[in-house]
Design a protein around this nucleic acid. Structure first.
Length: 288
DNA sequence: GGCCAGGGCCCAC
DNA sequence: GTGGGCCATGGC
């Protein structure tokens, strides 16, 4: 990987196992949109970036080096060696198919609170609607981002827990998040009171961190694992949603244990999820 | 128009 | 501890 600054852009050359479109559209993040020129605008925390990938070259448009180094480089997990990860998780034919199909997916390093609220909203919901709800939520409670994107659009930060102090379920009626409104209110309340301390998760075992997260009403095992994987960079977290359940039922059967993939089970999970959702396993069942 | 969605809560049993 | 109904809403 080679990183250079050119005019107002940051250019990343010679990067392997990186696919911008798959990484953004594989269901781990909800604040992005594709532009007419095929580039993507990504909003995360209180930052916005316009990014494109052509012929393997990754370009962060109108971005200075400091911004790239202090946020986006880690956000896109650019310094991790996914080739080595893939060697480690390639324990069966299913995951090998998924690795090939999902090649280029990176696990994004998202803000913990943003991931927490986002995945509460995700429950029993579909991705287009999750995106709409989060967008409305940020428009209402976030701050306008001072971006150098020059595209005339406005972008809003993800609000902090402090900003949301006192939030009630009724306050959320505008964003049509339905029964999840009370869950969001409970999360804000418990985080602001210190009952749930997100900054303490890092020094806890997976089991203990899960227990803390699941003290929030509306966070069960699946959402907690998503928060750990996407919001805490814990790569062994293995969220099991309806799609992963489907894979287990169809191909693995009883006795499936995510530990089979080792410390990067979360990456394996993302390859499997993406491949099932996009029909990448269809060749395995077409003969049945 | 009915099924489904990156689930979890609550209550029987 | 586990299985099923229920929860709001809208994408497809």
């Amino acid at each position: 990987m080679q990183i250079t600054a050119s005019k107002n852009d940051i250019i990343v050359n010679d990067i392997t196992s990186f696919d911008l479109a798959k990484t953004l559209e594989c269901g781990q993040v909800f604040r992005y949109e594709q532009n007419e020129d095929r580039s993507y605008t990504v909003v995360s925390s209180d930052k916005a970036a316009k990014i494109s990938q052509n012929d393997g070259v990754l370009t962060f448009h109108n971005m200075d080096r400091d911004c790239f180094e202090s946020y986006w480089r880690a956000y896109f997990d650019l310094d991790r060696d996914y080739a080595t990860i893939k060697l480690g998780i390639a324990v069966d034919d299913m995951i090998k198919t998924a690795m090939e199909h999902g090649d280029g997916i990176r696990i994004l390093k998202q803000n913990t609170f943003e991931a927490l609220i986002s995945f509460i909203i995700s429950q029993n919901n579909n991705i287009p609607r999750i995106k709409k709800i989060i967008q409305a939520f940020c428009l209402q409670f976030g701050k306008k981002i001072n971006t150098p994107l020059h595209d005339a659009k406005e972008y809003f930060s993800f609000p902090s827990p402090e900003t949301l102090e006192g939030l009630t379920a009724e306050d959320l009626a505008f964003c049509k998040c339905g029964f999840r409104a009370k869950y969001i209110a409970d999360a804000v309340k418990k985080i602001n009171s210190g009952e749930v301390d997100l900054s303490a998760l890092a020094c806890l075992s997976n089991e203990d961190a899960m227990k803390i997260l699941m003290q929030i009403n509306g966070i069960g095992p699946k959402v907690a694992n998503c928060i750990m994987l996407y919001g805490c960079a814990r790569f062994d977290a293995f969220p099991i949603d309806v799609w992963i359940k489907r894979i287990i039922d169809k191909y693995y059967g009883e006795g499936f244990d995510p530990a089979r993939y080792g410390q990067y089970g979360g990456v394996a999970q993302q390859y499997l999820f993406y491949t099932e959702r996009t029909g990448g396993f269809s060749s395995l069942t077409s003969s049945q």
